[in-house]
């Protein structure tokens, strides 16, 4: 992690969807180096909006921030042409459910190759070779065959690996994974995450993992942002999650079932207005 100049630097980011009064995200600040950052929160807490705002993929929303910088690019003022260059090549995003995030009428391999051909001038054959290479990198056993399959012909786990292949193909510096395993069977979840984790470490990619699953974030991230009602209420190292100070985080942790734990009813969050205040900074 380069302390002096992080790869991504966001200060007081607010996002308001057109036609609504309350911002979906307000005053979110964080920095990211070549590390793995988890953003955790309940549905509607604004965590996915943060991810999409970074890629400027929200045409119907107003973005304001004191600072939103990715490497040398000021994202706030970057024109769409610059964003086209960044997206897919230097920053990309893994979406939640391969059933919906892959184009149903295009062969999987062509969709992967398209990610490459958008940014690199090359022949079809070259892009195909690159895509097949990437398919084996996500541990797909028969990449030549899978290249020619349509999305409805692959399983969820395989679909998500295809998605990962597509998004990591151009060697981006930053990858945002928006609930990458929520739509998958529990049995393949870990496998897919390990593949993603392996590639992220190997290539030194900065990862933002958006999730509502505390235990996944705990084991796959270095640092965690806890979001509540559009705000970051607490930032802490993943290994310190158990020592969280914010009552919301504590409530989330307490509401998790544990194998071998008590069989009493799990506690339910009792929300308080004071939760909107961030936890005091740790010394």
């Amino acid at each position: 992690m380069t302390e002096e100049r992080p790869m991504l630097d966001v200060k007081n980011l607010s996002v308001r969807y057109r036609g609504t009064d309350t911002p979906a995200v307000r005053d979110v600040s964080f920095t990211l180096g070549r590390e793995r950052l988890g953003i955790v929160g309940e549905s509607g807490s604004g965590k996915s909006t943060v991810g999409r705002a970074l890629l400027k993929l929200l045409p119907t929303a107003e973005l304001t921030a004191d600072r939103m910088r990715f490497e040398e690019v000021d994202l706030l003022t970057a024109p769409e042409r610059k964003m086209l260059e960044l997206r897919g090549q230097r920053m990309s995003m893994i979406l939640q459910d391969p059933k919906f995030s892959l184009n149903p009428i295009q062969r999987c391999g062509l969709q992967i190759a398209e990610a490459y051909r958008t940014h690199v001038r090359c022949s079809k054959g070259e892009a195909r070779a690159k895509a097949i290479e990437m398919l084996s990198a996500v541990q797909i056993r028969d990449p030549e065959r899978v290249f020619d399959l349509y999305p409805h012909e692959v399983s969820g786990g395989m679909g998500q690996r295809i998605m990962i292949a597509m998004m990591l193909l151009a060697d981006p510096g930053l990858v945002i994974a928006d609930e990458p395993t929520s739509a998958l069977d529990v049995t393949v979840r870990l496998k897919v995450l390990r593949i993603l984790d392996g590639l992220v470490r190997e290539k030194g990619i900065g990862l933002i993992m958006i999730s509502h699953d505390l235990s996944l974030v705990r084991s796959f991230c270095d640092r965690v942002l806890i979001m509540y009602a559009g705000r970051v209420v607490e930032t802490l190292a993943a290994r310190d999650l158990d020592n969280a100070r914010h009552p919301y985080t504590q409530g989330l942790l307490a509401a998790q079932p544990r194998i071998g734990g008590s069989r009493d009813e799990l506690p339910v969050l009792e929300r308080k207005d004071s939760w909107l205040e961030p936890a005091e900074e740790r010394p």
């Binding site: 993929l57 997206r87 897919g88 979406l95 939640q96 184009n103």
Partner: peptide, 14 residues
């Protein structure tokens, strides 16, 4: 509004 359209945008397509 489908997700695959977002995917295409994320890939850097205009």
């Amino acid at each position: 509004n489908q997700e695959y359209v977002t995917t295409a945008r994320v890939k850097g397509l205009s």
